[in-house]
C-alpha cells in the first residue's frame, strides 16, 4: 500500500515538478538538464503582453475578492439567520454556479455581454465583464465556506449584544464578524485563487484587449512551447499554491 501511494504521488507531482524545474533549465529543448538559469524569468518579465496579462489577472482577482466576500458573507449570514419562503430554492440557486459546467456559464456570459456590455472601454473598466463573470462563480464558494463556520456560531451571541444596547449593525460588527473572521479570510483567499486560476469562463468573456494570464499562457502554448511559458506558469503556480495553503489554514483554524 505504501509503495502504491508513493507511486501515485510521483505520478501526481512529476509533471508539475518537471514543469517548474525546466523553467530554470538552460536549454531551449526543454528535456535535458543543462544547468540552472533564471533567464527565462527575465525574458518573461520583458514580455510586455505577458506582464499586461499578469497585471490584468491580479487586478481582476483583487476586485473579485472584495466583491465576492461582500456578497458571499451577506448571503451566508442570510441563509444562516433567517427562515423564509423558497429558502431551499435560494440555497439551491446559490450553489448552481458551482455545479453547472464552466463552459455553459462561459458561453452564457459570452452571449450576455455581447448583447449588453459596451465595447472599447478604457482600462480597468475593460476588465469589468471578466470581473462580473468571476464574481458570479466565486461568491457562492465564499458563502459555502462562511456557512461552514456559521454552523457552529451561537445564535444567542448577537441577541445578547443587542440586549446590551447594540444595534443590528453594531452586533454584527462586534460579535458576529469576529466569530467568522477566519472563514472570511479563507473565503477571500479562495475567491482570489479561483479568479486568478480561471481559464474557461475567462476564455469566453475576455476581449482582445483584456487578456488574463491563463488565457495568455494558453495562446503562448498554441504558438510554441518554450521555457518562457514554464516560467510564467511557475509564477502562477507559486501564487495560487501559497494562497490555497493559507486559505486551508484559516478554514481549519480553531476558534480562539
Amino acid at each position: 500500500m505504501r509503495s502504491f501511494l508513493a507511486a501515485f504521488f510521483v505520478m501526481l507531482y512529476a509533471p508539475i515538478v518537471t514543469l517548474v524545474a525546466f523553467s530554470f533549465n538552460d536549454s531551449k529543448r526543454n528535456i535535458v538538464w543543462r544547468g540552472f538559469t533564471t533567464k527565462y524569468y527575465a525574458k518573461a518579465a520583458a514580455n510586455e503582453s505577458l506582464i499586461e496579462a499578469f497585471a490584468n489577472s491580479l487586478t481582476i482577482a483583487a476586485v473579485n475578492m472584495v466583491a465576492s466576500v461582500a456578497l458571499g458573507v451577506a448571503a451566508a449570514v442570510l441563509l444562516w439567520r433567517f427562515r423564509f419562503p423558497f429558502r431551499h430554492a435560494a440555497d439551491g440557486m446559490m450553489s448552481l454556479p458551482i455545479v453547472i459546467p464552466e463552459i455553459c456559464l462561459g458561453v452564457a456570459l459570452l452571449v450576455f455581454f455581447n448583447q449588453w456590455w459596451p465595447r472599447d472601454l478604457a482600462w480597468p473598466l475593460s476588465l469589468g465583464n471578466i470581473i462580473i463573470a468571476h464574481i458570479t462563480f466565486t461568491f457562492p464558494f465564499v458563502a459555502v465556506i462562511v456557512r461552514g463556520r456559521l454552523a457552529s456560531v451561537n445564535r444567542e451571541l448577537e441577541k445578547a449584544a443587542m440586549d446590551l444596547g447594540a444595534s443590528e449593525w453594531q452586533a454584527m460588527r462586534d460579535v458576529l464578524l469576529p466569530q467568522i473572521r477566519p472563514s472570511i479570510i479563507a473565503g477571500a483567499l479562495i475567491a482570489f485563487t479561483l479568479s486568478l486560476d480561471d481559464f474557461v469562463i475567462t476564455y469566453f468573456t475576455a476581449g482582445p484587449n483584456s487578456i488574463t494570464l491563463p488565457v495568455k499562457i494558453n495562446s503562448m502554448v498554441r504558438f510554441s512551447v518554450t521555457p518562457e511559458v514554464n516560467a510564467a506558469s511557475t509564477v502562477l503556480i507559486v501564487i495560487t499554491v501559497i494562497a490555497a495553503v493559507l486559505a486551508m489554514r484559516f478554514q481549519t483554524a480553531r476558534r480562539a
Binding site: 509533471p15 508539475i16 481559464f199 499562457i217 502554448v221 512551447v225 506558469s233 495560487t240
Partner: peptide, 15 residues
C-alpha cells in the same frame, strides 16, 4: 494540485 491552474497542469503533461 487541484489549486494549480488546470491549463498549466494539462500543459505539464505535454512533456
Amino acid at each position: 494540485p487541484f489549486w494549480i491552474n488546470i491549463l498549466i497542469r494539462t500543459y505539464a503533461l505535454i512533456a
